[in-house]
Amino acid sequence: MSLFRHHPTRLVRLVPLLLVFIVAGCYPDHPQSTFDSTGPVAQSQLNLFYWIFWAAVFVFVTVQSALLYICLKFRRKPGDPDPEQTHGHNKLEIIWTVLPVILLAIVAVPTVLTIFDNANSPDPDGMHVNVVAHQWWWEFNYPGEDVKTSNELHIPVDEVVNVSLETKDVIHSFWIPKIAGKVDMVPGNSNKMWIKGEEIGIFHGQCAEFCGESHANMRFQVIVESRADFDAWVASEREPAVIPVEPLAKAGLDLFEGDAQCWSCHKVEGSSRSRGTKGPNLTHLSGRQYLGAGIVENSQTNLRNWLTSPNDLKPGNIMYRDAAVYNDPDKALSDSDISALVAYLRSLK
């Protein structure tokens, strides 16, 4: 305060500094930035944000400057007499009650309009995806396309996708910052939203509601692609898994469907044995870009690390907790077992 006491004009120099500070905080190019929306839902939310933001900046600058002015102007000087004991001013009090009401009305109207716009799908008969959340991964089912996959959501560009949201355990929240704000998945209470991607690319999403130990590791990717690419992806996803011929991968398949008991929780289409539903569907695992619900790149090394010590990548995960190969030392996987499993899983294109 004393710095500016004699030079209130110095304060003016702080304004560009403040703006630089604010602008420095927005990074449209970051993967989960809300400032570079590529879908109409996120765009409408961003427009609303800007609308309110500038109203807030107006209020902030006005009120804080007034406060600062008062602080500088009415400082006590030695020998000052008691100020006049004013108790209020009716007109002023009415003004500063009514002005905020007007300002809030300016904010309220677009808010209500946007709430309703985003609640109602513009194309309710369009494509559907059912998203089912689990601790700590995502299941994506396409009833129309007869495709079931996990942790990577493919959608065709410029098409409305109707999403229904469910959870198998606790509350989660489905959020793709660049495409749409979040909607929660509540047990026993299916929610709906709609999304549309207007730009081809890979977009990041993340669970937004605290859901337990690995909440931070419950991520996913949205792959927005051309209709042709999407159709090709659907066609390949509908193919059953290829049965490996290479000996190591073959050994992996035997383990998967045998002693390692992977089959009891994971589904591989085409296998009569691997029909579990507790864990992610692995039919086309090596076609995915990420492992472990969007947390690491899908590479041979990462897959090996994941199978060796899943708890390091995703603490608390249920496979590590419940699978005999991890909790029973007598059944633990040997290095060669893991090599075989990696070879098999890498063959699931």
Partner: peptide, 9 residues
């Protein structure tokens, strides 16, 4: 502003 809050919540 509930709609904008969907990104902030």
């Amino acid at each position: 502003s509930a709609a904008s809050d969907a990104q902030q919540q």
